[in-house]
Design a protein around this nucleic acid. Sequence first.
DNA 1: GTCTATAAGAAGATAGAC
DNA 2: GTCTATCTTCTTATAGAC
Lengths: 254, 254
Amino acid sequence: MFARPTETERGEVRMTVETGSGAVDGSPDGTDGATDGARGADAREPEDAWGEVTPDAARRLLLAAVEAFAERGFHATTTRDIASRAGMSPAALYIHYRTKEELLYQISRVGHERSVRILTEANDSATNPADRLAAAVHAFVRWHAERHTTARVVQYELNALAEEHYTEIVALRRRSEEILRGILEDGVAVGEFTVADIRGTALAVLSLCIDVARWFRSGGSRTPEEIGTLYADLVLRMVGAPAGGSREGDRPER
Amino acid sequence: MFARPTETERGEVRMTVETGSGAVDGSPDGTDGATDGARGADAREPEDAWGEVTPDAARRLLLAAVEAFAERGFHATTTRDIASRAGMSPAALYIHYRTKEELLYQISRVGHERSVRILTEANDSATNPADRLAAAVHAFVRWHAERHTTARVVQYELNALAEEHYTEIVALRRRSEEILRGILEDGVAVGEFTVADIRGTALAVLSLCIDVARWFRSGGSRTPEEIGTLYADLVLRMVGAPAGGSREGDRPER
DNA sequence: GTCTATAAGAAGATAGAC
DNA sequence: GTCTATCTTCTTATAGAC
């Protein structure tokens, strides 16, 4: 029969990748794409973001998996492909990870923790809702563009996760959602934003940011920084708070 | 060796599904989701949209493929799964389609033709850019919500297409892009919109609409119609043309 | 047109030498 | 820790009876 991954100790695969660290520096050469999703051609970026992963081989495998999953998708990627990209034999993978799915889980977990962290820090970077929203969108979008390879896996391969892992990740996603919704609520409360459907608008904003990972490609005409700026502006407009501070836009409540 | 699909005549799989027809009526029970992508659970809708597909068995297979691809992704879906959903043996599939990829291609082609048609009709439904934009976004978003199962495959399984099919589909996607960009250009030209980066904004709007297919789920709290209305409003704001007609918002250029 | 049976190969994961 | 070799199962696709 088919032995399921036994619970034997095996180096304890659960690594403690310091999600934070100086990771958001990166390719300043990214740019926009078209309506067509990335097709393997690109899907590459300086992924030194995983520098913290403990055994060197484990890090190389993780990096190889990110590239492969982003290019071809989780199910279309073979363990042989991952191992060979990492310069190892197929069997070597199983020394560091119990299953192919665990690789995806690690990528997804670290990526989502990073997302929550980016949104949290942006949210704490200012007091007025408009600046908090602009900062959050700018940073979140920039990350999705700069780290589009990772982000593509993080955002679009969720369904391949095992049930228990999926549940854990969804909890992190809800946190992101709540942070954004909180900003909108505050903005409406202090009269800085004009939003009828807060929950719906929060979802739309998040969706807009996330989808950057799908279409962004290096070699286009816009840098991640520029797209972040564009999107922050668009989102401020969406909530009725034109960029540049809407001091004069405030209705005096009669 | 492994025989590639021979060019023998085999019932001519290339069907002529009238992309149009009364297909956009459908589930009025759809609604919003969360930040988590749909996970199989849902991924179902009255897909009578394929009613025009010629042999009955071919239609059932197409419908089964749409559901399976939407739930599990192209690569994770087996031909056995598709055939069994259609109530047939695995071999029956190959009477109507040369390969699994051809099923995806047909779904993708019909879906993209439908997208272009929706945008074209909306674009022709009015003369002033604001109404054209609102109509386009409303209809496009509504389709992505109502037909989210199909749309998910159409929008997110592109990479699994064979090279030649991919090229053909990308051409259709560019057409959609051009239609939207054209509306924005007209709006800026007549002073109805205030948009600095037309191309970037057009891409963002398209991206926002497309991503509805990823997160939408039946059983939520919003109907496709409501989401269409919300998004049309959000997009008008994005281009600096508040809903309800921005007659008083026009700068008289002095 | 549809079935049963099966070919041909590749997949994920393990065993055991080094 | 890493390799080579291999097990088991599943895959797409075909052959040929009905």
